[in-house]
Nucleic acid binder design. Structure first.
Lengths: 300, 300
DNA sequence: AACTAAACATTAGAAAATCTACTGTATGGA
DNA sequence: TCCATACAGTAGATTTTCTAATGTTTAGTT
């Protein structure tokens, strides 16, 4: 394909629209530009080709003989291109909305609410990708990411899903009856921690504790941690919101708490957001909440 | 055709080139832009469609499945468009170079030299349009116009074909033996004048003569005037260059002369000039001359 | 004949798209 | 490990494209 000697595509498109519409004014409407713009584009195309394509005939226009020939070819070409794009657009529209988030958030917050979303929007299918890796948001890939940050990294202009106390938490069978009011005392307990993260060490650093002996840390996939903590395999650092039920029923014990410390917020491709993704994001926002102390309250 | 929901044509073209070349760098070369430009165009297309079209694979790239589908359609579409344009371009290339000029210039200056041009450039056919109307220069229409102006309207930057004395001239049978040294004396003679022009009246005005009685003016098509003047039907105002032969042989008599007064110059479409037209213009310039007094001399 | 309205043409300046030059990142081969 | 190659990202420059206003031509109307 010889791209170099092709006239500007926009000029070809304008002329093709004119040929199709039989009028500059109508073509301009269809292209959603002014009549002057179309007139100029066609002029520039004629100049490029050195051939008159359109001739005025009183108040209307007429294609010249070469104009007719060109218009026929262009019409076919653009038709094919248009169909190809349309096909792809349809394909894209039916693709599930892809959402990534941390395993803890998926299991403890999103999944319990998913049924409600599906009831409201049965036409939209979601594909969840629970991982603590930062998956790139990109067309054809992840549409929406729900991410965690602590309060110390403030941002403006972001959609918040959940603001929660962050807590160190454990099962009564593991921590019951001990005096654990000093952060340093937690160095003796086994920690459970997401693969590839460093929550336990960070927590001690934040609280000014330098562990005297090596910490006992079990790394495991995020989705297993909740279960393991409940079973008494170790303690972990997490959002209180994920354990409301456990705490009020006494199945879990809160060891330390940092009020309103953790923020889960939405990241999404700002422009050209797919309509389905937008619906999901709006729903997320409608479900957003602040969880603090021993009560949870809706924000919106 | 739904032009509104079509992505930007340039982005489609860039992606099609990438698909064809199998590489951003090569595609960029073929499109004669930088690799960054192509990269951005493809990105923007992906954003528009919400679909990943290209994926990196090490140091090379690979089209995604939807990318392959789209590329196939685009390839066909652009191919058709390209062929249509190419066909037209060929058609245009073989079209005769269309030249307009005054009838006098055509008969007396250009036609005698045409044979030489044809000898030098047998592949180029000319179509002459001798008329004193100002035909619009426009793609697909007139390529080159040779126009007259008098010295009083100076221009810069124009290609001159002929600068000549302007003379009032007549056949001996009509004007011989009379004392016509006073411009006013010419009011009594019959004038021949191009249809739609006003040369005679202008000439008297320029020479400060207010005709006492109505002038005798015969209007006729330009190509007939030369013959009529030679036959002694009247006098006319013209470039001396057209009558060199007649004057030196005594077949015509020069009544008044304005040295280097008339300029014949070339008008042509500056940009996107067809190659054939350019050849002809260059030849015209090579033939250009200044004609003054009783001698003519080549300028170049 | 004069008026009116509809359609295309032209222009300057504004707005938007596009490109370049540069820098950054990843990868395969010497 | 270093180098060369290819793609990615960014800011600012450049080019293209568009709009808004106005002009021109023509067909139909009064």
């Amino acid at each position: 394909m010889d791209w170099l000697h092709l006239p500007p595509m926009n000029a070809l498109r304008a002329f093709s629209a004119v040929a199709e519409a039989g009028s500059y004014t109508v073509a301009a409407e269809r292209l959603n530009v002014t009549q002057a713009a179309v007139s100029q584009q066609v002029k520039s195309l004629e100049k490029h080709l050195g051939v008159a394509l359109v001739s005025r005939r009183g108040r209307s226009i007429e294609l010249t003989e070469p104009g007719i020939i060109l218009a026929r070819e262009l019409g076919i070409g653009f038709e094919i291109i248009g169909r190809g794009v349309e096909r792809l657009a349809e394909h894209a529209a039916h693709r599930p909305v892809q959402v990534t988030m941390s395993p803890a958030f998926a299991v403890e917050w999103l999944l319990p609410r998913m049924a409600e979303f599906q009831r409201q929007h049965p036409e939209i299918t979601l594909m969840l990708n629970p991982t603590s890796e930062l998956v790139q948001i990109r067309p054809g890939g992840i549409d929406v990411a729900i991410r965690y940050r602590d309060r110390r990294m403030p941002r403006k202009e972001e959609d918040t899903v959940l603001v929660s106390d962050m807590v160190v938490i454990g099962a009564p069978s593991l921590v019951g009856g001990q005096d654990l009011r000093d952060p340093a005392s937690l160095t003796k307990l086994p920690w459970l921690q997401e693969l590839g993260t460093n929550e336990a060490a960070d927590w001690f650093t934040y609280h000014g504790v330098v562990p005297a002996e090596p910490l006992t840390i079990n790394h495991m996939p995020g989705n297993l941690i909740m279960t393991a903590v409940r079973r008494g395999d170790g303690i972990t650092y997490s959002a209180r919101a994920f354990f409301e039920e456990d705490l009020s029923s006494g199945r879990m014990i809160e060891l330390f708490s940092e009020p309103l410390f953790g923020v889960y917020y939405i990241q999404t491709q700002a422009e050209f957001q797919r309509p389905e993704a937008k619906v999901f994001v709006n729903w997320l926002i409608s479900q957003s909440q602040v969880v603090s102390a021993h009560s949870s309250q809706k924000l919106i």
